[in-house]
């Protein structure tokens, strides 16, 4: 059985993991186009990368809100 205190700790831990994941994701939106693929003049380079980045961010946000209970 999960006690109240443990549940709070679990939520906090989960929150930290998600925040770290978002930090990595957001930093990637700056680093990857500006350091690695920016020079490639193809639709499959920065255009595709930023679109995929946004889809990852959207899916992650949707995942976080599925935890909520009314």
């Amino acid at each position: 059985m999960i006690t109240g205190g443990n549940k709070m700790k679990n939520l906090k831990k989960l929150r930290i993991y998600w925040i770290l994941w978002f930090l990595i994701l957001i930093v990637s939106a700056y680093i990857i186009p500006y350091q690695f693929i920016g020079g490639i003049s193809k639709i499959t380079a920065s255009f595709l990368f930023w679109t995929v980045f946004a889809i990852f961010a959207i899916i992650s946000t949707l995942k976080i809100i599925t935890y909520w209970r009314d």
Partner: peptide, 15 residues
């Protein structure tokens, strides 16, 4: 294409 990155970084801020 930087315009796309700019607006999608905003959208990711919905997190």
């Amino acid at each position: 294409v930087g315009a796309l990155g700019f607006e999608l970084v905003y959208l990711s801020g919905l997190a």
